[in-house]
């Protein structure tokens, strides 16, 4: 399984802003479990209702904002999502729609960063967009905090893996990666 919940980075402005998109598709197996149809024979059985889970929208924002925070220090710091300050939703995403993540740095220092972000839903049928939610996150620069937090972490960069660096390259925001992590 590839734990990457954004498809393309549209904008990346150092220590300021990152915009990414994710296209929701019925080829994603999880949509068939979220939510499946009731078994046949059940009274008032409900049809399947595939919607993209909002917890994964938070993960998408965390990846967008995490890239923004990591990029601020040229990915030399390992950045971990430490806290979901606030997440609110007013809509759900369905197959064929695009989720747009717009993340901004609110504050960044040696210890970590806080970000704010807006999620927008774009309907591919009409091209129109509507607000989907707002998400505020906290990130920790774990190599500075691990002593304080009592963390025992692996040595390799498990945060910004080759998948993320490839995504940056394919989106036109980084040179071609030279090695695979």
């Amino acid at each position: 399984m590839r734990w990457i919940w954004i498809d393309r980075i549209l904008e990346l402005e150092r220590a300021t802003r990152c915009v990414a998109v994710k296209n929701v598709t019925l080829a994603e197996e999880l949509l068939h479990d979220h939510f499946p149809a009731d078994p046949e024979g059940v009274a008032d059985a409900r049809r399947a209702e595939p919607v993209f889970p909002n917890p994964l929208v938070i993960e998408g924002m965390a990846q967008t904002a995490g890239i923004l925070v990591g990029h601020a220090n040229d990915f030399q710091e390992r950045v971990l999502l430490a806290k979901i300050r606030r997440a609110s939703f007013v809509a759900v995403a369905r197959p064929g729609q695009t989720i747009r993540y717009d993340a901004q740095v609110e504050r960044i220092d040696q210890s970590g960063a806080s970000t704010t972000g807006q999620v927008t839903l774009i309907d591919s049928a009409t091209g129109q967009s509507q607000p989907m939610g707002e998400i505020e996150l906290m990130f920790s620069h774990i190599d500075r905090a691990k002593g304080d937090l009592g963390l025992d972490l692996p040595d390799h960069n498990f945060v910004f893996t080759s998948q993320f660096m490839d995504l940056l390259y394919q989106s036109g925001h980084a040179p071609r990666p030279t090695s695979q992590a």
Binding site: K83, E106, R107, G112, S114, M138, L149
Partner: peptide, 10 residues
């Protein structure tokens, strides 16, 4: 928790 101190600080 520990991370809340960073949040409170900010």
């Amino acid at each position: 928790e520990s991370i809340d101190i960073l949040d409170v600080t900010f």
